[in-house]
Amino acid sequence: MKIIFNNQSEEFQHVMLTLSELLSQKEFSLKNIVVLLNGEFVKRNDFDKISVRNGDTVMAVNLFAGG
């Protein structure tokens, strides 16, 4: 599948991945992470249930201290 991940086009061998699998492949920490799938906020508890498919757009942001 081909997706847009953080504004970059990326290809994966898999036909689909759960958000948890995608984030772990991208080596994202799950601590204080905000994920939007096709512009919609995804709750942390749903990362194992929600799948990412061809053509999807994902934004993942780890939140860091500082303000």
Binding site: N6, N7, V34, L36, N38, G39, E40, F41, T57, M59, V61, N62, F64, A65, G66
Partner: peptide, 17 residues
């Protein structure tokens, strides 16, 4: 960076410590 109704400004990686 923008997605849906969220805009995130900054480098997205540096942490105050």
């Amino acid at each position: 960076r923008e997605a849906g109704n969220l805009v995130v400004c900054g480098d997205g990686v540096s942490e105050v410590s």
